[in-house]
Amino acid sequence: MKSGRRAAFIVLILMSVFLLLNTPLVWKWMYPIKFQREIVTASQKYQVDPYLILAVIRSESGFKTDRVSKKGAVGLMQIMPETAAWIVEQAGFQTRDNQYLYDPVMNIHIGTWYLNFLLNRYEGDLVKVIAAYNAGPGKVSGWLVSEQWSGQREHIEDIPFGETRQYVQRVLYYHDRYKSIYNEDLQ
């Protein structure tokens, strides 16, 4: 009899904890938005889903402005300096110095401009865009032409690079998570 009460008590405690954790406040704490104004501004200017920008930043840098990858990608959206130089030239951005990728506003604008470029290139196909953001559009286009990968979400496991495969899965997860948590709050 005592063990039955104890089990019921434990179940009650676990249900209470689950209900407490499954609240919007807790979800927003687990998935914060930093640089919201900058993200919304860039989102509107370049017509890119703000949840995609958030997902890329969360996946790439965890919102750390000074992050530099082993390969040399810099800042919030982890942009390679060569890619950034090309974007600055194409988009006509004005940079103050060679440290511009560490500036969160500039980094978000450059990264979002690039996402818009990829969205246009891949006709709005989010999965291909995310893969190209990680591996480069040349690689992704090569995989598609050689039929190594169909480009479809259902076939992410066919992406030839493990890093890109995991990256696409992670960004899609964060995209879906942020979208469900913040719904219309990020406009």
Rank of each mutant, 00 (worst) to 15 (best):
S150F: 11
G75I: 03
S59R: 00
E157Q: 10
Y102P: 04
P104K: 00
F117V: 01
W29R: 00
T23V: 06
S146L: 10
V56K: 02
T65I: 13
V74I: 15
Y31A: 07
P81M: 12
F18H: 02
V74W: 13
I156H: 03
V105A: 10
V140P: 05
T23K: 04
E38D: 14
L101T: 02
F18C: 09
P50R: 01
E157T: 05
D103W: 04
K64W: 12
L115V: 07
V68P: 01
D49H: 05
V129E: 06
K70E: 15
F63A: 05
K70D: 15
D103Y: 04
Y114S: 08
E89R: 03
L119G: 05
S150D: 07
A55G: 06
M106P: 04
Q148S: 10
S59Q: 13
Y31C: 03
D158R: 10
E89V: 00
Y46H: 04
G72C: 12
A55N: 04
I108S: 11
S141E: 13
D66H: 11
D49Q: 05
T41A: 14
L119Y: 03
F93E: 06
N134A: 09
S59W: 04
I33A: 07
Y114R: 01
F35L: 09
D125K: 03
V48D: 10
K45T: 14
Y122R: 01
S146G: 04
L101M: 07
W27C: 04
M80H: 10
E38T: 03
F18T: 05
